[in-house]
Design a protein around this nucleic acid. Sequence first.
DNA 1: GCACAGTTTGCAATCGTTTGTCGTCAGCCG
DNA 2: CGGCTGACGACAAACGATTGCAAACTGTGC
Lengths: 373, 373
Amino acid sequence: MSDRPPRLRDVARAAGVHVATASRALNDETASMLSAATVERVRQAAEALGYRVNGMARALKTRRSLAIGMLVPDITNPFFPPVVRGAEDSLAKAGYSLVLANTDNDDQRARREVRIMLEGRVDGLLLAMARRRDPLVAELSAGPVPVVLVNRTVDHVGAFAVVPDDHAGAVLAVEHLYELGHRRIAHVAGPQTTSTGARRLAGFTQAAHSLGVAMAWIEAAQFNELEGARAASTLLRGAAGDHPSGGLPLGRPERPAAVGGASLVRPPSPQPRPTAIVAANDLLALGVLDVAARQGLACPADLSVVGFNDMPFVDRLQPPLTTLRVAEYDLGYRAAALLLERLDRPERRAETLLLTPELVVRGSTAPPPATIS
Amino acid sequence: MSDRPPRLRDVARAAGVHVATASRALNDETASMLSAATVERVRQAAEALGYRVNGMARALKTRRSLAIGMLVPDITNPFFPPVVRGAEDSLAKAGYSLVLANTDNDDQRARREVRIMLEGRVDGLLLAMARRRDPLVAELSAGPVPVVLVNRTVDHVGAFAVVPDDHAGAVLAVEHLYELGHRRIAHVAGPQTTSTGARRLAGFTQAAHSLGVAMAWIEAAQFNELEGARAASTLLRGAAGDHPSGGLPLGRPERPAAVGGASLVRPPSPQPRPTAIVAANDLLALGVLDVAARQGLACPADLSVVGFNDMPFVDRLQPPLTTLRVAEYDLGYRAAALLLERLDRPERRAETLLLTPELVVRGSTAPPPATIS
DNA sequence: GCACAGTTTGCAATCGTTTGTCGTCAGCCG
DNA sequence: CGGCTGACGACAAACGATTGCAAACTGTGC
């Protein structure tokens, strides 16, 4: 208790060898240089003394901390725990530790955390909070440690990233609604500063356009229920404008003018309201459902709603939410695996891995109400 | 890119001072030993070179890594993210990093993670996975770094812990049901190997006893929906036994004999089924609701259900769940704060902080159905 | 019996800081 | 003018491992 923990020197002395020999004996890669007897003797001594290698000293010498830093906007958002879990499992398997920090989408806080992590000499960074043009991500990518983006990526080419195929997912959602008979579909888009927000919108508009359905969309300022409700109340105020010319450039929709946090592609006009809404994620969908209920619209009888992500427990809502399942665990797992690979092969070329979402049809989508129109 | 990052030596040379002087200039506590001019000159040089202190070297010298390890059973369980978040916020404020690992309630995995963390020389440990008699926790408490338990504690006295007042919470739940008119109340108890499971059961039985209501309870093997369903199906099979003599010793109920993972305090007898069920946590409550629905029992008309924890989204279930809100964020925040204090004052005496839960009445509880009995 | 090859092991430098101790120098008072 | 007192800053010794290189030792073949 009072005496300090044993050092390698103590082990060496106990085993009657030099400290260098002890080091080699304890290290699996170098143990083969030594005779089996010596290795055994050293290991016994280490065991007996309760020796534990000093990671700081080792890291200082080897320039490897065996730690990876991960930045998420907010672990409290139900989307992220599985991602973190996947990353942790992947890293643990390789003997790495996960250092976690929340950024709250706050650039200042993110920079602070990054500085601490970099000073702590993490070997790499997993970033789940990237914006499409993110100066911090740009700096970091040019920095001393390899970076892999998760879930959200940047517009700039040349990043390492593991993200869901947002575009394809949105197309799936629209096609599903189309097949049910919907011809007026709206989208509550996520913040267009994020790749997820932008690509889902792009997929939505492209699918709507190529299927020839009337559409409208609004950008939510954040991925949360409040913003979802705000957007929905505009969309459902009989305000859904017909927007047949909506094909935006694939994957890079232009940013619409924002109006008080939410923006309209077309000014409200006395058009019939949409019969279905695709939300850019489940949290937004929850907001939509709230507003619909408040306005006396039954889901799915009067309004179909599709979410995105298949967060835990959305299958237990009333009605259970139709949504796009993205393999969150895999997102984290693959991203961490990619990062670990890069540590070994630094010359590796940039690559983006797209994970295809799966449409999960539940109770919140149904054929549109029969109308005279 | 190709050249190594600048070292303190480089900064010192650029500023024209000795490396020791540079070190002091960059350190807020020691900067006062130097003239203002020198400090300024060194800081300018550091800034210009983009100097970043090498945490490994510093940690090696100071024996402080500025990192805290945290072990949770599974970050994917919605209860834990707020706890982790609270801990991270608390630590970040003090300049510490959070190293996170999942144990899956697996002792082997936990030991592995702990070893890695200790080798990485974390300064302290936050443990959210303790069992009532946990040899690992015992070893760790006697180990080289301070330990603070979160959410779950151990039976052995002398631990540092921040946990919800489980006993009081369970009493609140029973009293609430009693006031609604319920006189036959059952409990789906959590695993009795955990303090949360045991103390909630103790509170339940004590309250039931002192109010003189008929009660029964079953132990679930784990805190999840499946086990909740299993327990409920037994409890609702008209199998709820009258159990007036159930007062168990306060805070330390004896472990009942387990029967295939779930155990009955009394063998099933043809008694009327309970009109209300208190579940030891929200996940178990979800399982109860599933079974009730499957058996055609309406909640709350035929059966009232109370959960525990107020997990995210249980307010959006149908019906919204009545539950006990424990301040999860605070749990993590306070635990981390306590740990940090211990780092400064190692002689500090053990203490347990109990956070009182708050009863949140929602739609899943109502007066019992009027019966002839 | 010796040179040589091959295997083991020891030596010592190094990683980048922090910090106790000691010199130096300027200013001030007597 | 000399000695004393602080204030600054430099020296050098750690912290505990890893690793290139060289020495020592073992056995073998001639």
